[in-house]
Structure formats: C-alpha cells, structure tokens
Nucleic acid binder design. Structure first.
Length: 192
DNA sequence: CGCCGGATTTAA
DNA sequence: TAAATCCGGCGA
C-alpha cells in the first residue's frame, strides 16, 4: 500500500487489500480517487470544513460521510498530511464472515453484487459516523490490511458525478480488480 | 436561517 | 423511474 501518495496512485494500490472488522473480512475490488480543492468533484473542493477535515489528515485514516440521507460512505485518506485526498471504497468481495454480512445487508444469499457499491460496503461492515477519522492501520475496530492484489486492473471515469469536466476526462479516477465481478458498470472500464 | 442537491440503493 | 431521507455549504 502506498497511501502517502496522490489518490490516483494510492487508489489502484488499495485493490485487493482487506478490510477487517471482527469476523468480517472484505477484499476491496473497486475504488475511486478524490483530490483536494483543485478537484471540482471532491468534498474538499470548497476548502477545509468540519465534515471533510479527515481528508487533510494523515494517510490511513477513515473518512466517512452520510450520503443522500441514507447511506454511509467509506473513504481511505491518502496523500501527505496537510494535503486533501481520499479514496472511496466502491466495492468488495466477502472473504470471511458471510453470515454477518448477509445479516447487515439484509440479504438472503451471496451474489457477486452483494457488496458492489459504496453504500453496500459500509453497510456490510456495519460502519457509521463513529468510524470517521478512525486509524485503519492500527489494531482494533476496523482495520486495513495487505491482501491479494488483482492480476489485472480496470480503469475508467467516475460514477455518480453529475457533470464531466475536462479534468475528469483527462485521466482515470476509478479502478477495479480485473478478476472480480463485484464491480459496478464493469463494461464502462478498460484495462489499465 | 432556509433552500438545494448529492461520491446511492432499492423496489415498483 | 422515483422515493427514501439528511445535512453540508451557500446565498439571503
């Protein structure tokens, strides 16, 4: 993991890494990079505020926020402390604790899309605002660990952004594991 | 202080 | 295709 790097470099490095909480272990399959004030789609676009403060913090911390009044979104803070950037965890596969995940997700059985989507990932891990700012590299609570990196990586544009500026098209912001089906709109991605 | 709209999910 | 359902940030 190279978290002390710009988000577009840290993002693909997070693919295959593990998110562990109690008996649940998820393997990250899809991520999306977000930058600082210069990134018009980032929460940091209006500068530092109470909500996005974790984005300016040291890498390896969690940044969680409530979206659409419905779902929590998990980000891994990247880049050097003092600069804002983070990587949204968009999808994952269940490696352990399937029973817990099914209960959290209120699902009857496992499917490739069980944890495909940022809201689903946080729900599967039972996360909420209490984990905002949590140190993912320290033991306890929610942990980020090295895992099995994908053999190939897919890349493409961001999802859910209602506009597409030249900056957004200039380079890829979304990355996914080529060996996984836990990826939304996989057809929109292409090999790195 | 009130309004607008969003890094989404699910069900109809 | 729309509803669910909050709150951050901006304009007044």
């Amino acid at each position: 993991m190279h978290l002390n790097a710009p988000p577009q470099f840290a993002a693909p490095a997070l693919l295959g890494c593990l998110l562990v909480r109690d008996e649940v272990t998820l393997r990250i399959t899809e991520v999306e990079a977000y930058g600082g004030p210069e990134d018009s789609a980032s929460h940091a676009r209006h500068g530092r505020t109470a909500r996005n403060a974790p984005m300016w913090g040291p890498p390896g911390r969690a940044y969680l926020y409530f979206c659409y009044g419905v779902h929590w979104m998990l980000n891994v803070v990247t880049g050097p402390e003092g600069e804002a950037s983070a990587v949204l965890i968009r999808g994952a596969e269940v490696m352990a604790g399937l029973g817990c995940v099914l209960a959290q997700r209120k699902a009857a059985k496992e499917t490739p899309q069980l944890c495909a989507g940022p809201g689903k990932v946080a729900q599967a891990l039972g996360l909420d605002g209490a984990f905002d700012g949590h140190d993912l590299l320290a033991p306890g609570g929610l942990e980020l660990r090295a895992g099995l990196p994908p053999r190939t990586i897919l890349t493409g544009h961001r999802l859910g952004i209602g506009f597409a500026t030249a900056e957004h098209r200039a380079r890829p912001w979304r990355f996914a594991a080529g060996d996984s089906l836990a990826v939304l709109q996989r057809k929109a991605l292409h090999p790195l």
